[in-house]
Design a protein around this nucleic acid. Structure first.
Lengths: 298, 298
DNA sequence: AGCCCGGCATACCCTGGAGGTATGGCGGAA
DNA sequence: TTCCGCCATACCTCCAGGGTATGCCGGGCT
């Protein structure tokens, strides 16, 4: 009835993930019997059945097991984050790490860095570029402290403040039939725009097949891009269309791509996000400075 | 260089809290030497100095130690939450627990419960009343899943959605000199209203002395109340004034108390809050239902 | 039917490390 | 000086986490 140890949670996660104690034990680098015992010990500690063993040759998760799988992910994440942040705090350069998509928010960061430069004891800002959708993960596991993210981003695991809301433009290859029109609507673009799923950005949402070719649902079929320059290449080649925030289009003018406003597209929201309960007292200061910036005329 | 175990984090927290290994070991129920060793082992695992031992007869926390103290609190909280939620998920009645201040939001909860009653597999709602400011804690440690909170509530450890914003009324004892006026302003009430600090609600913020009588700063001197009925008693006795949301005043008419609008008071915001990353897929459904309610005319 | 195989559980052994006791070192107060 | 408070070191004990060997059970193959 006591409390579980970290090791038990890692073991449980491995078992719950492939629902096979023998394989999980190999992945974990231990023998099968200790793992069997560890799982039974965990169940008796919690006083709850985590596995359904009614079928003697395969196990499945009970409701409680499903709950623990998700909850333990949080525990392990926060432990990783604790270790990373502690190590970072110890290694002299106690900088706050800000992670953002390439090309975004350089002026924001310059502003924030300038705003707090004079504050006594203010940590330096270390800027870091990360790929699409990677920001949330990096903040969650402690590799970064603040993230500049463009919505939509699905979960609400992070605390956040809105910095900017802007309209979208469709990025089309020159010569595209829609390029002749001055204003577009989302209906015109259906099935051709990039979509974000499972941490990947894929050209043309119609390429997402439900169950095509026997692949599991959600497997991308179209080209997958990692950053915005790749995305622009794919667009220039006519393989997809993107709905991009206006400030981005102003910074990425290319001779082979034209931009057209799409007034009815969902607006693009830029938020600054951080892990709830982050230990640094400077987080709110930086967020506040970022919001001052967002109020500025541009 | 490996990862710390839960036990080590609990030990560290105890040591970091009273900065005295000997006393901490007594609190933990173990001898002093093992605790000393455990702390050194933790430091070598993390590869970081957590304690400053330059003064040989007292230890203090390094920057990294301060970081780990705050971060480990999160880890331990999320572990407690994981255990609690798992146990709850296992013990048949897999209800979602909603916690709220007494007297609030009964119609909201009725609405939400009705909205999702027909959904197949929807868990029941178990309503729970908790004292001032206790809601956040209960959600964080897994005893509750959703909280109805009135702002201001300081930290942003929880994800939340705004349900209602309403004006405030000043609650005065009948015969109070201000009761003769029809409309008041916050300036009229300065130093007499209830204030929330350190999880306590205290009558008359002027009773909060900085350092009076040698007590540490922040010690309440005025009466401390646990719930709204106690608060109304204190008001009726003329010991303090409260700034209450209008819907509350409509439900709590008393012959010995009069309410007067205070248009310039900070509005009262009711939010529904939950722990980021909560495993239940029903959380967003319930939040959505609550927002439908908040759009309703009343 | 008989056999083998995949998969989990049980029995038993071994060892590392967590925790205990005893004691030393160090600085400050009396 | 002496004593006290406090942390560190030395050395011992013992348990629990891990390993090996083996059993049980159901299903598929011949």
């Amino acid at each position: 009835m006591a409390e579980p140890e970290i090791r038990e949670l890692r073991y449980f996660r491995a078992v719950a993930e492939d629902l096979n104690i023998t394989r999980a034990s190999e992945r974990l680098g231990i023998a099968q019997p200790p793992l069997s015992r560890a799982m039974r010990a965990l169940e008796s500690r919690l006083g709850v059945a985590l596995f359904d063993r009614s079928d003697p040759r395969r196990i499945s998760l009970t409701e409680a097991g499903e709950t623990l799988l998700k909850e333990s992910a949080q525990v392990l994440d926060s432990l990783d984050a604790a270790v990373r942040r502690t190590r970072r705090a110890g290694s002299q350069t106690a900088a706050l790490v800000v992670t953002a998509k390439p090309g975004t928010a350089t002026d924001l960061l310059n502003f924030v860095a300038r705003e707090l430069r004079d504050e006594p004891g203010a940590p330096a800002i270390q800027f870091e570029v990360s790929g699409f959708g990677e920001q949330v993960e990096r903040v969650m596991d402690g590799r970064a402290d603040l993230a500049i993210i463009g919505s939509p981003h699905l979960d609400n695991a992070l605390a956040q403040e809105v910095l900017a809301v802007e309209g979208r433009m469709a990025a089309l290859p020159v010569g595209h039939e829609l390029a002749s029109r001055e204003v577009l609507s989302v209906a015109d673009l259906r099935g051709q725009v990039f979509s974000h799923r499972a941490g990947q950005t894929v050209a043309g949402s119609n390429y997402w097949s439900g169950q095509r070719d026997g692949r599991p649902a959600g497997t991308p079929v179209g080209p997958v891009v990692q950053d915005s320059s790749q995305m622009l290449e794919v667009i220039a080649l006519g393989q997809a269309i993107a709905l991009l925030p206006v400030t981005f289009t102003q910074r990425n003018l290319r001779p082979d791509i034209v931009y057209r406003p799409v007034p009815d597209a969902e607006p693009y929201t830029t938020v600054i996000a951080w892990k709830p309960g982050h230990p640094s007292p400077w987080i709110p200061r930086y967020v506040e400075a970022a919001k001052r910036w967002s109020g500025l005329p541009r």
